[in-house]
Amino acid sequence: MHVVYPVVLAALLFSVGVYGVLARRNAILVLMSVELMLNAVNLNLVTFDAWLKDTLASGQALTLFVIAIAAAEVGLGLAIVLLVFRNRSSIAVDQLRDLADRDAPSAVPGETVAEREAAR
């Protein structure tokens, strides 16, 4: 079996995940997209493990680690998302703008400060 197939699949999956992370508003959807990216990495790990016939089984071991970390990440991420939802009744990523430059006359063109505060 050619290495190219799984590796290209992984690359495409990763890109899809990138798109999801960048384009989705809902924080849970962003988490899902992150999972897609992690899985793309997993696929690469497994592929190269099989290709290189690694005696340490490092590819598969690392895949297991990634899966475990992903589980932890989702658990914590969801806890945070729920907390945010509880406090703000919204988990739209682009509305959580506490990092914004507060004094900016208008962060989004055409949007006034009052509107922005109201949206927050």
Binding site: A100, P105, A107
Partner: peptide
């Protein structure tokens, strides 16, 4: 600075887009 400030709108996705 105001132009550059526009990018500092607190939207993490925008930051991430720029980073990537």
């Amino acid at each position: 600075g105001g132009l550059i400030r526009l990018s500092q709108n607190g939207n993490p996705q925008l930051y991430l887009t720029g980073l990537l």
